[in-house]
Design a protein around this nucleic acid. Sequence first.
DNA 1: AATCGTATGATTGTATACAATAATACGTAG
DNA 2: CTACGTATTATTGTATACAATCATACGATT
Lengths: 232, 232
Amino acid sequence: MGSYDVKQEVNDKYSLRGRVFNKIREDILSGKYKEHEELREVAIGEELGVSRTPVREAFRQLELEGLIQIVPNKGAYVTGITAKDVEDIYMIRSKLEGLCARWATDHITEEQLEELEENVYLADFHAQKGHLDQMAELDNRFHQILYESCDSKQLARLLVDFHEYVLRVRRKTLSNGGRGKVSNDEHRQIMEAIKAKDKDRAEILAHEHIVNAYDNMVKNGLYEIYDKAEPE
Amino acid sequence: MGSYDVKQEVNDKYSLRGRVFNKIREDILSGKYKEHEELREVAIGEELGVSRTPVREAFRQLELEGLIQIVPNKGAYVTGITAKDVEDIYMIRSKLEGLCARWATDHITEEQLEELEENVYLADFHAQKGHLDQMAELDNRFHQILYESCDSKQLARLLVDFHEYVLRVRRKTLSNGGRGKVSNDEHRQIMEAIKAKDKDRAEILAHEHIVNAYDNMVKNGLYEIYDKAEPE
DNA sequence: AATCGTATGATTGTATACAATAATACGTAG
DNA sequence: CTACGTATTATTGTATACAATCATACGATT
């Protein structure tokens, strides 16, 4: 029942092209390539040991994903994420995560629900111990389970994209200790709403969960590193 | 203020690559290439008078847009849209159109609001006359104005994508006379809510507008042409 | 007759060669 | 010294050549 691989069916990691794509993508997300940095086809090709062709194809896809911007006959540049972009994305995500939780309430399997419970309890433990890495891992997994159990390829694809996109920012915020516990409490409430088959409540809680995450981020001023204004 | 070109900034139509991409895309959307049809690089290249290279790059992008599916070393196939895909996309869109109307309420300019009013009145006229083509055109434009006036690149990009995606289906439903008038009445209500700066109402109305459009489509059984089951 | 294996052809994947465009540096004219 | 124009170089855009993979057909073997 409602469960398929949410991770990149497109661009299988084991083809050359897939590897090139994922590598460049990862390098942008991880911050190796800075904002507005120009990416040269030959340089990246040499680094990965391939010719320009696969690199160019990867560029076209990265452009569509919004990670780079290609200006014809000039070059490819890492897109700058503005503060407004971050806000917009979080607001959009909040709506979609709500919808996802609603649908998950209807379509989640026993196994998935159990993993969700387990996730919450485990995260509680790590929160007490202050294990930030495990917390981050469990947080990712929690949302991923929801994406898988909403039983919608379309929605899952969108949310996975946004989730990874937002990692560029979130990578900084999770090291901020305070919210870990609170965030997991919200996870628990969402999980319990789903368990109780209360779609409306699940949707509202999941929606608020993202809004809260954003508010927390803003409060801590964790995204000031990004452009205030539109990049040119 | 809040107004930039919502139409494909990516893939400028005037580069070769952009033209190739848009042409293939259009041919899929228009139904020239049927579902599950295999697209061969050389054949399409010859048809457009270009080599395989630009075609391949376009393919990679179309894959990411979800219009085709590339299986490594085999070929590119037009993706099948299932009935569930259509439903999911409409539900997702309904949420996002709601958000868009909310934001548009805050950021719309005088000029945009005026064009919105004009649009509604004009559409009323054409509805009475039964001018289906003009109705469709005005409907597109109505939503486009909202995308432009929501003042969010991120949201606008998503909605434009979905809107065009959904055209594959909608192309059939607009020829169905009944809803034209009702749809435009809903447009008017949305426009008036925005004019009155009532975000909550604008959001709800825009949301319901899409849900209604979907319900109408289902009622008329206009998407039975699509796969009932997952394509393989 | 059925099945397996091999050979052949078609198609995609990758690399390279060539063309077009843009950026830079330099030299000359004012 | 500045400004303009030209030459040079670097980089992208496109086409083509070659390699790898897959599908098909045919024939041999059981």
